[in-house]
Write a protein that binds this DNA or RNA. Structure first.
Lengths: 195, 195
DNA sequence: TCCTTAACCGGAGCCTGTCTCCGCTTCACC
DNA sequence: GGTGAAGCGGAGACAGGCTCCGGTTAAGGA
C-alpha cells in the first residue's frame, strides 16, 4: 500500500508489521517531528522495538519510508514543471512545492540536508532527484534570462530547505508562500524586477 | 569576566565554577552544537552535574550565558547601523551580522526562534532586542523607499534565522553573505532593482 | 494435512543523556 | 576560630536508542 518491498517479497506478517509501523510513524512524526521516540512508535504500532529496527535500521530509513508517496508525487510534478510554459513561474511553483513537502514534519529539513550530503542513504536518492529537478528548472530560467547567473542550484535548494525550516517552526497560514515569493524576487536579474 | 551575576554577588567558589562552566560550554557547544551533553560539560569543567543545573536550570540559560558577549556587541553594532547613512546597506550589514552570530553554534537558530516566541526566557530578552533593531532598520529602509512595503520585520528576522540555520549546516566559506545578498535583493521595490 | 525451516518476532537489557535530591563541604562574616 | 548560609557533587531515578537471541510462525513441499 505504501512502501517499496525492496528485494524479495516480505512474508505476510512482516508486511503487515511494516505497514503498521510506517502508518504509526507518519502519525507520531506529524505530532512530534522526525525525532519522535522510535520505541513509542513501535509500541503504538503494536510491535516490539526489535521489529522496528529490523525493518528500519536507522531513523532515516523510517523517515524515508514515511515519505515515499510524497516524494513520488513531487518527482512527477517536478517533471511536469520542467516542461511548462513560464520558466520563472515554474521555479516559483517548484519552490513552493519543495517548501511544502519538506516542512511536512518538524526536523525534516535537517534530515533532508543531511541526506543530500551523503548519497548512500534512503532519503539520499530522493534528495538527489529533487536537487536534479531544482537544477534543471534553474538552468531553464537562467537560459531565458529570467534569473541571475550567479544563482546556483545549491543556493536554491538550500534556501528552499531554509524556508521549510522556518515553516516547520512558525507554521504560517500560507505555508511559506510569502517567503518564497520574497526570496525568489531576489533571483531576478537587475533589469527585470517585477512585483 | 563573562557573565552578569544577577541578584546578589556570588561566593568566590561559585563564581569560579560558573565561569568554568560557561567557558567549557562555549567549547563544547562549538564542537557539538547547543545540544551537547550537559553532564559532559560539567565533567569537563570539573564540577558535578548538580552544580551545573543549579547555575543554569535550563539548557537555554547556559546557551544565553555563553552568548552574552556576542549579544552585547550585536546590540551596539545594531544601534550604530540605525544611525548610519545608507538604510539599505545598513539592513544588509545587519542581516550579515545576524546570520553570523546566530550561526555561532549548531542548533542555535532553533533556540533563538523558540526564545523569540516566549519573552520570559534568558535568550528571550536579547532576542527581543534583535527583533526591535530589525524592525527599526526595516522601517527606515521602507521610509526611504528602498524596501517593499509588504516585507515585515518578522519576515526579515525569520529569513535571517533561516539563513543562519543553513549556514550552521553547510559552513560556507563566506559565512552566508552570498545568500543574504541574494535574499535581500528580493526586498527591493519593483522599480529599483540593482545588482 | 503435516513437517520443516527460513524468516520473523519481541522484549530484556545495556548504554548514554537528563535532571533531582540530599548529606557533606566551604566560604564569609563576626 | 566559630557558625550558619551558600554552595558542592555524585548517586540514582527515569527515558530513549539500539542489540541480541531464544521463541514463534508463515509458506511451501511431501
Amino acid at each position: 500500500m505504501t512502501s517499496p518491498p525492496r528485494g524479495r517479497a516480505l512474508r505476510a506478517d512482516a508486511r503487515r508489521n511494516r505497514d503498521a509501523i510506517v502508518t504509526t510513524a507518519r502519525e507520531l512524526f506529524g505530532r512530534a517531528g522526525v525525532s519522535a521516540s522510535l520505541d513509542e512508535i513501535a509500541r503504538c504500532a503494536g510491535v516490539g522495538a526489535g521489529t522496528l529496527y529490523r525493518h528500519f535500521p536507522t531513523r532515516e530509513d523510517l523517515v524515508a519510508a514515511a515519505l515515499v508517496d510524497n516524494m513520488a508525487a513531487m518527482r512527477e510534478r517536478g517533471t511536469q514543471l520542467v516542461a511548462s510554459s513560464d520558466p520563472f513561474d515554474a521555479m516559483r511553483a517548484w519552490l513552493v512545492l519543495l517548501v511544502e513537502q519538506i516542512s511536512t514534519y518538524g526536523g525534516l529539513p535537517d534530515a533532508v540536508l543531511d541526506a543530500a550530503r551523503q548519497a548512500g542513504s534512503a532519503l539520499g536518492t530522493t534528495c538527489a532527484t529533487m536537487q536534479q529537478l531544482t537544477a534543471d528548472l534553474l538552468r531553464r530560467a537562467q537560459h531565458a534570462g529570467l534569473v541571475r547567473d550567479d544563482v546556483t542550484a545549491e543556493d536554491v535548494f538550500t534556501l528552499g530547505n531554509a524556508i521549510a525550516w522556518a515553516v516547520t517552526r512558525d507554521r504560517p497560514a500560507d505555508g511559506g508562500r510569502h517567503l518564497v515569493n520574497l526570496v525568489i524576487q531576489g533571483f531576478r536579474p537587475a533589469d527585470r524586477a517585477a512585483a
